[in-house]
Design a binder for these strands. Structure first.
Lengths: 153, 153
DNA sequence: CGCAATTCAATTGCGCACAATCTAATTACG
DNA sequence: CGTAATTAGATTGTGCGCAATTGAATTGCG
């Protein structure tokens, strides 16, 4: 309101960035905070949970594949996977045919946790508080935005 | 491509969380990566830029007010503000009437930077690659989601 | 007034997130 | 072959992000 009085009428350089970047930034943190207490009983952090979800969807992926799925590089994943390994949830072993690759797979315990994590999904579903259709539409819109941001590098 | 062929019809415990949390998580990082090269000439990180945007909108806020605007606590803001102060962009001084509060305000240099940052906004607008109406709709949807997540604590 | 409770920042510790760098293994090419 | 270029993963350094603690200042209440 205390904007200067001679402001433009059309104003093309709208604050389109401040709008969306604040919103996405805040929503990402809101997700982290919502998940945190639900994941605490499992002893997982939010990024660790995302890795586990990726492995529950498809077991035995390379570090590179996980990185592409989650948009993370080895600098983030290496120590994270080391902690998951120390917790007994995953195991890593080098590919015999290509010794550069490290294959990450679930342990018995890691597979067992999938069932325990079902309640997490249920509770988040409640917290999201909208219909599946709305959630799908929002996901698609956000993913489309992400695609445009990634493509515009 | 290797999706399972026997996809569900009912399945109540849908992966509603995995859908959205992956999307938001990835979009937040995509924003960070898109902004990074644009902010480099200014010597700002993405969170530092968000603090500057908040101060350009309204100068002279307390640490607490900034924290509420951005959803960050003092543990994050204190060192971040210290770096902005060292860069000569903001100054901090304790409130005379209530010595517990620290008021953060822009320096001459910090105010000047607002004009330089205009091109950042323009470039992001291009990278977002959708109409203002779409951006507003998406922002509102994301903010509504964020509100429900925050409210459901 | 005196003292407990509250409030605001700062600090500490741990875990991401990423650029840059490094090592080792594989592939490509002359 | 053998050397260069590429690829996968790990390491290092900087900067968030947050819980928990600390410390100082203010407020509330008898």
């Amino acid at each position: 309101m205390s904007k200067n009085a001679q402001t433009v009428a059309p104003e093309p350089p709208i604050k389109i960035d401040a709008m969306l970047c604040f919103a996405i930034y805040g929503a990402a943190h809101a997700f982290t905070r919502t998940y945190k207490p639900l994941l605490e009983p499992l002893g997982l952090t939010y990024p660790q949970y995302l890795v586990m979800v990726a492995l529950w969807e498809e077991d035995a992926q390379t570090v590179k594949a996980l990185g592409e799925r989650l948009g993370l590089d080895s600098g983030t994943l290496s120590p994270l996977l080391k902690r998951l390994e120390q917790a007994g949830l995953v195991a890593r072993k080098r590919n015999r045919e290509d010794e550069r690759q490290v294959n990450v797979h679930l342990t018995e315990q890691g597979l067992t946790m999938k069932a325990e994590a079902a309640s997490v999904t249920a509770n988040i579903g409640k917290a999201i508080g909208c219909s599946l259709d709305e959630a799908v539409a929002l996901r698609d819109a956000v993913n489309a935005l992400k695609g445009r941001l990634d493509g515009a590098e």
